[in-house]
Design a protein around this nucleic acid. Structure first.
Length: 279
DNA sequence: CAATGCACCTGCTCGC
DNA sequence: TGCGAGCAGGTGCATT
């Protein structure tokens, strides 16, 4: 479900709904969802009594800053199938409910995750967030950051001899792209996914950088639902727009030239492309 | 060191 | 209808 646009949409919803209300308790239904601390009782104990000042996003990670002069953090990664839902506590439990955090008397932030890859962390005050949520340490710049310049991108690419599709999925190259938006950005910039990073010329790198930003912002603009079968925090949506140019369109005609969309595996992931429009 | 393959899970779809 | 194979939006670790 969630790549950068979906995570950003969730962040927006959480900032509207969850701030300034005390966490009054919680329930962990699947232990291994809690990556830190080791004890789930300690996790609930530490989160309890806090209020959330604001939700941040770094790549596909969500970080709740807990109100304090020296803040602690609640980290969440949705991985493949995680959802955060804002509900009343009396709502029937979904089969895949993994963690419940109670807010005030009636409200609840519920973590539902079919495939159980999703994780949550509690990061104490005065501790570097990257030392607990280790995935953050290797995270590259955000595609919307002013640091994501052509020069930055070109420098990363010239050091990497592997297919560009694989490179785009590497969160230490750019943070936030996943399989869908990587394929879409490559189509938009006319680059075959198999092209080696080192083979890309400056004009192509400029095109690709622009395509990444465009594809992601277009999706954020419609609430991350462009091609995601995705639920917002309020539980609305879940529409599959089918607006992708290439993703999941194997065997169908290219929307630009009519050529059949192909699929190959790169780095273990399906890559969709038009061999006519991309070279 | 960089690149690759696979494990981690549950559930759905497809072909036989 | 049943069954196995293959697939799914991500990441981390072992192996080359």
């Amino acid at each position: 479900m969630p790549e950068l646009p979906e995570v950003e949409t969730v962040r927006g919803g959480l900032n509207q709904l969850t701030l300034s209300q005390e966490v009054t308790g919680g329930d962990v239904l699947l232990q291994r969802t809690i990556a830190y601390p080791f004890s789930v009782d300690e996790f609930i104990d530490k989160v309890k009594g806090n209020t959330i000042a604001t939700w941040h996003r770094r790549g596909k990670y969500l970080l709740a800053e807990l109100s304090s002069s020296s803040p602690s953090y609640l980290g969440v990664h949705l991985r493949m199938t995680g959802q955060l839902l804002w509900l009343t506590q009396d709502q029937p439990l979904h089969k895949h409910t993994r963690v419940r955090l109670f807010f005030g008397e009636k409200q609840e932030l519920r973590f539902v995750d079919q495939r159980t890859f999703g994780q949550m962390w509690y990061v104490p005050s005065h501790v570097a967030v990257e030392s607990i949520i280790t995935g953050l340490a290797k995270l590259a710049v955000d595609p919307f950051s002013p640091e994501f310049t052509v020069a930055y991108f070109a420098d990363k690419l010239k050091k990497s001899r592997r297919p560009i599709k694989t490179g785009l999925l590497d969160q230490s190259m750019v943070a936030g792209l996943g399989n869908i938006y990587a394929d879409e950005a490559l189509f938009k910039s006319g680059i075959l996914p198999t092209t080696l990073c080192t083979e890309l010329q400056l004009p192509q790198i400029e095109l690709l950088r622009t395509a990444i930003i465009q594809v992601l912002s277009a999706s954020i603009a419609v609430g991350g639902t462009t091609f995601s079968n995705f639920l917002s925090v309020k539980g609305v949506n879940g529409n599959y727009g089918g607006e992708a140019w290439v993703y999941n369109r194997t065997g169908e005609p290219c929307k630009i030239c009519g050529n059949v969309i192909g699929r190959i595996k790169l780095g273990g992931r399906s890559s969709h492309f038009c061999s006519q429009c991309q070279s």
